[in-house]
Computed example of a mutant assay.
Amino acid sequence: MWKLYALLSAIFAALTAVLAKVGLKGVNSNLATAIRTIVIVGLAWGIVAVTGELKGIRTLTKQNILFLTLSGLATGLSWIFYFKALSMGPVSKVAPIDKLSVAIAIVLSAIFLKEQLDWKTILGASCIIAGTIILIR
């Protein structure tokens, strides 16, 4: 099931780039990011409320809160830089560079989470990097 969710994530991420590029016309990228964030906050809390998962807030540990907060800060900075890049460059060049995050995440997962990398993962990350270089030149 996780593969379906990952594919849906990729589809919606692609839509994000195209829709944002249209929405950014004549709008400051930071303002656009703030508007997008409000929508996401409402959507996320709405899903939590409708699915009855709000009670899980009591089970959060200090470590959960710390790392989810840090992840939120990283997400916010990613979005700010992504929208700035989209406002200045073509989606066909910005999106592939943004997707280098996949290869970077693989490296970081090996370093910090001690995940084992097999030859297929290393080859795939290398292809992502090579593909990005080809697409942006």
Rank of each mutant, 00 (worst) to 15 (best):
L108W: 13
K25T: 14
K99P: 03
E115L: 05
T69K: 12
A32P: 07
S109E: 03
L86Y: 00
A17I: 00
L31P: 07
I65T: 14
G89Y: 10
T61Y: 06
E115H: 04
G42T: 02
L113A: 06
L86D: 00
T51L: 02
L73M: 14
G124E: 06
T16K: 15
A74S: 07
P96W: 02
F67C: 08
A103K: 02
I35M: 09
T132L: 03
K25H: 15
L108D: 12
Y82F: 07
N28S: 10
L117A: 09
A17S: 08
Q63F: 10
V94W: 00
K120E: 10
F67D: 12
N28I: 03
V102Q: 02
A13L: 07
I80Q: 08
A95V: 07
L77S: 02
A14K: 05
W119I: 12
I40G: 12
I128H: 00
A105P: 11
V18C: 05
D118R: 09
Y82N: 01
F112C: 02
V94H: 00
K25G: 12
A110N: 09
A14E: 10
I97Q: 04
F67Q: 13
T37W: 10
W45V: 14
G56R: 13
K120Q: 13
I57E: 11
V39A: 11
V22R: 01
L70K: 04
K62T: 04
L7K: 03
